[in-house]
C-alpha cells in the first residue's frame, strides 16, 4: 500500500496540530485560563493520527481520560474542543463534559470515557449496532496499557470476538498507568499476547511511526469491515509529559525519557521526509504557521464564547 504525498502530508499536519494543540492547552492551563485538570499526550501523535487517518467518515472512535489528540486527529474542529476546555457553552459538550469527556458522536467520536477500561464495552456495543444495522462501519477503541488489566477489557473483547464485531481494539502502550510501570502489573510481555485468549489476532507495532500505525490499522479495519472480527493492536509509544498537570514524572529515568525523545514521531517524520524531499524547511514553516493560526482562532473563539448559565446544569439529564 503506497501512500500518496497528499496523504502523508495530511498525516503530518494532523500530528503537528495535535502537538501544538496540546502545547497551547498546556500554556493556557498554566495561565490559569482552563479549569480542572488535563491529561496530555505529547509524543503519542503517531498513534492517534495513524489510527484516525485509516478510518472512514461514519466510523466511530472511543477514547479515554487522555483524549485531546484523539479528538484532534479525528477531525473535530479545534475551536469546539478549545471552547469545551474553556468551559464554554459553544464547546463540543456545551460545557458539561470538559477535558476528560470531549467528543462529538456526529463527528465520529463518542464523548471520551474517563473510567479506565469503561469505554471498551461501549465500543463493542457500538460495533454491534453497526453489524446489526448492516452498516459498513467500524469502531476504533482507544485505551491505555493500564486498561488491559481491568475486567471490562476482558468481557468486551471476549464478546466482540465471539460475535465477530467490527471493532479494532487499539492499546496505546505508553509504558505507565499513571506512575506504575506496566511490566510491574502485567506478567505477559506484551498486551497483544492477550489476544490469544480471545482467539483474535494481536499485533505489537511501533506506535511512534505514523505510517506503520496507519498500515496496521487499515489492515485491521479491513478485516473488521469484512466481518472477520476484531483485532487487538498494541501501539508502543510514550507520553513525553506527566500523567496529569500535577505530575513531574520522577518515576521515570532521565535516560528513558531522553531515549524516547529521540523517537518523537513528528521529529522522525520530518527527518525522513526532509531527506526524501517530501518536506522542506519552508513547507514545515508554512504548515506550522497555518496550524498556529487555526489554534489562535480557536482560542479567540473560545474566549469570546459565552459561558453556560449556572442553571443549565439542570438540563440534559433525561431526554424527556
Amino acid at each position: 500500500m503506497n501512500l500518496t504525498p497528499e496523504k502523508k502530508l495530511a498525516m503530518y499536519r494532523s500530528m503537528v496540530l495535535c502537538r501544538m494543540f496540546e502545547e497551547q492547552v498546556n500554556s493556557l492551563f498554566l495561565q490559569g485560563k482552563l479549569p480542572g485538570t488535563i491529561h496530555q499526550a505529547q509524543g503519542q501523535e503517531a498513534s492517534a493520527v495513524g489510527v484516525c487517518q485509516a478510518l472512514e467518515e461514519h466510523d466511530m472512535i472511543t477514547s479515554t481520560h487522555r483524549p485531546h489528540e484523539h479528538a484532534v486527529a479525528r477531525g473535530i474542529p479545534v475551536k469546539y474542543l478549545m471552547a469545551e476546555l474553556f468551559a464554554k457553552k459553544t464547546g463540543c459538550c456545551g460545557g458539561k463534559g470538559g477535558s476528560m469527556h470531549i467528543g462529538d458522536a456526529a463527528l465520529g467520536m463518542l464523548p471520551a470515557i474517563a473510567i479506565v477500561g469503561g469505554g471498551i464495552p461501549l465500543a463493542a456495543g457500538y460495533a454491534l449496532s453497526f453489524q446489526y444495522l448492516k452498516k459498513p462501519n467500524i469502531v476504533a477503541c482507544f485505551f491505555g496499557d493500564g486498561a488491559s488489566n481491568i475486567g471490562s477489557f476482558h468481557e468486551a473483547i471476549n464478546m466482540a470476538a465471539i460475535w465477530d464485531l467490527p471493532v479494532v481494539f487499539v492499546c496505546e502502550n505508553n509504558k505507565y498507568g499513571a506512575s506504575t510501570a506496566i511490566d510491574q502489573v502485567m506478567k505477559v510481555k506484551r498486551v497483544s499476547d492477550r489476544a490469544a485468549a480471545y482467539g483474535i489476532p494481536g499485533q505489537t507495532i511501533d506506535g511512534n511511526e505514523v505510517e506503520i500505525v496507519y498500515r496496521a490499522m487499515r489492515e485491521a479495519a479491513a478485516r473488521a469491515r469484512e466481518g472477520k472480527g476484531p483485532t487487538l493492536l498494541e501501539l508502543e509509544t510514550y507520553r513525553l509529559v506527566g500523567h496529569s498537570r500535577s505530575d513531574p514524572g520522577h518515576y521515570r529515568s532521565k535516560e528513558e525519557v531522553a531515549e524516547w525523545k529521540k523517537r518523537d514521531p513528528i521529529a522522525r517524520f520530518e527527518a525522513t521526509y526532509l531527506t526524501e524531499g517530501l518536506l522542506t524547511d519552508d513547507l514545515i514553516r508554512t504548515i506550522r504557521l497555518s496550524v498556529e493560526q487555526e489554534l489562535n482562532e480557536a482560542v479567540a473563539f473560545a474566549e469570546a464564547s459565552p459561558a453556560p448559565l449556572p442553571e443549565e446544569c439542570l438540563t440534559d439529564v433525561f431526554n424527556e
Binding site: 466511530m60 458522536a105 463518542l110 469503561g118 471498551i120 464495552p121 461501549l122 465500543a123 463493542a124 456495543g125 457500538y126 460495533a127 454491534l128 449496532s129 453497526f130 446489526y132 444495522l133 475486567g151 471490562s152 468481557e155 468486551a156 471476549n158 464478546m159 465471539i162
Partner: peptide, 28 residues
C-alpha cells in the same frame, strides 16, 4: 438469535455492550 442474543456470563459486558448498542441506534 440475532435479536435474542445469548451472552456469556458477563454482566459488565452485557450492560456496556447494550449501552453502546443503544448509542448506535438500537433499543436493547
Amino acid at each position: 438469535h440475532h435479536r435474542v442474543i445469548d451472552t456469556p456470563i458477563t454482566e459488565a459486558g452485557i450492560a456496556g455492550v447494550a449501552t453502546g448498542a443503544a448509542l448506535g441506534g438500537l433499543r436493547p
